[in-house]
Write a protein that binds this DNA or RNA. Structure first.
Lengths: 68, 68
DNA sequence: ATGTGACTCATAGTCCGTG
DNA sequence: TCACGGACTATGAGTCACA
């Protein structure tokens, strides 16, 4: 599977496990709401600094977001 | 440690383990040679598609390149 | 609460070189 | 063989209005 798709699925799942809306999640992470929406649809090709931000907030390693 | 630093170290180590020059490695992966040089010095902020390319060629998961 | 198109500005990524 | 620079084009970062 495409790496963007994997990120999309992993991100959405992990956000939902925190019971956060995209809006609340985006606010907490410090990324714009629509950007999160794009990521969860695999519509963006983010840099690793974005991955790092997400992983840190979620308390996981970057690999957890990108690996299957 | 910074995620770019981690990538830099992991990448250099894994390339050297294959006994490839930056130039040969870059050619095989399909990325420009100067870009590999930049990555190994932590001077760049690559997108996840670049990470994917590197990981596939090296036969590892993206996490192996980004996690410590 | 979320998806989407459009937009500006910064930077990812390429290609030419040099010591 | 590699670090590093300059110049360039393509695309990501970040935001908004609207459905």
């Amino acid at each position: 599977m495409d790496i963007r798709e994997r990120l999309a699925r992993n991100l959405r799942k992990m956000r939902q496990q925190k019971n956060l809306s995209q809006e609340a999640f985006a606010h907490d992470v410090g990324i714009h709401r629509t950007y999160i929406s794009d990521l969860e649809r695999g519509a963006r090709n983010p840099t690793i600094t974005i991955i790092d931000k997400l992983a840190r907030f979620l308390g996981v390693t970057p690999g957890t977001l990108l690996d299957e």
